[in-house]
Design a protein around this nucleic acid. Structure first.
Lengths: 212, 212
DNA sequence: GACCCTATTGCGCAGTTGTCCAATAGGACT
DNA sequence: AGTCCTATTGGACAACTGCGCAATAGGGTC
């Protein structure tokens, strides 16, 4: 295949890995699959990535970070705490649950399950998870400071809300037809309103564009 | 190894499979692992189970149902709605999160991740999931009827609480040291109290034995 | 003890997988 | 054109996996 600079090649390898991952899941992504997608030999992959674990972690990191960055950008636009929290949920739903990128929800389940077997993937998954938590806890902290939200421990509330979001992903992916995405979206907002002592509907009403 | 009747042998094979699954996860359970655990040859397993998929599905079903049955038995002892809800959380924590049985939390992640690819496993997983939901919704319905709990939709509240429990399993298993089991246990109760408009501490105080 | 049924063995097979490495080829510079 | 660096090749390798089969051994019955 055509020669590339190391930077270009590494990027191409990760892109191909993401494509295969989206199709076959993390556990089903092999060196040979990536090589075929890339149109090169399998040896080339190991010339740039020491192990398959490293490559999978890198590909997962890039794909997952895209969603996180989208949320962080939304939050950085400012506004009051309730508006920002509504933006958080909106962007989360669009980016992750609707799978706007190359990244289906299934990948999250794979990442969580594989984390126990692949050290690099576990580290990546945990780091991203903590960034999500920090972003959400920040918004909650603002709301508490402004007196529009009530909770004893913004960190704990953020963990609870994130755990619920993860659990809802689970329900939607693994048990499909018993829970629709729309229901999951609405329920997560309801639970957040209750968790933070907001008035019912505060989160869904705060965003008027595009919604219902 | 000692000769056994087909029924005994099948039961022994499933028991050994459950033991290995608890240690290595579903994806990490191989024929040879089970044979070693059982103390027999690997050929014997295939003499009783047509495929490894069948064996894994059977073992998962039995192990998962054991936890559900434990909770159902606890609930059947009666009591008022708050007491029964406390029993639900207690038994859940002990059975699933503490892994008092042979059933590690990792198995749930594996099962959920594999559900999209393995039809038999998906059916089993979804059926059990619905039974969990029904059990919890039943308790909540009782609480609403008795006027000690408030929620618009017991079914939806049950789904939310179960999703949170699933999400917390996720956090504990996949991201280990950022969230302890004790915290997860306490947070799930806090969230349930908020979801059902119980007074704070109602669930943790309802059980005095063993707790703190 | 001889017989027979079958539970059990243990190795072989074909297919994976990740990893490694000597050989090759592409392209920039003299 | 010749030289050299390195990106790339493609197959070998060992360790796996699920699976199948001819051979074996264990324990009842006569």
């Amino acid at each position: 295949m055509a020669r590339m600079s190391p930077e270009e090649r590494r990027a191409a390898i990760v892109a191909a890995t993401r494509a295969v991952m989206a199709r076959r899941g993390i556990a089903g992504t092999t060196v040979r699959d990536v090589a075929a997608e890339l149109g090169t030999s399998s040896g080339l992959i190991h010339h740039y990535y020491a192990s398959m674990d490293d490559l999978l972690a890198e590909a997962f990191e890039q794909a997952a970070r895209a969603d996180l960055v989208e949320v962080l950008e939304g939050l950085s636009q400012g506004g009051n705490a309730v508006e920002r929290l509504a933006i958080f949920f909106d962007t989360y739903d669009r980016g992750i649950r609707d799978g706007s990128g190359d990244f289906g929800m299934q990948i999250w389940l794979d990442a969580w399950a594989e984390a126990s077997r692949r050290p690099a993937l576990r580290r990546t998954s945990r780091r991203l998870n903590e960034e999500w938590q920090r972003a959400l806890a920040d918004v909650i902290g603002q709301g508490v400071d402004d007196g529009v939200m009530q909770c004893d421990d913004p960190d704990a509330s953020a963990w609870r809300i994130l755990s619920l979001l993860d659990g809802l992903i689970l329900q939607v992916v693994a048990h499909g037809d018993v829970l629709s995405r729309e229901q999951a979206d609405a329920w997560s907002r309801d639970a957040a309103e209750r968790e933070l002592r907001l008035r019912p509907g505060a989160l869904s009403r705060a965003v008027s564009v595009g919604g219902g």
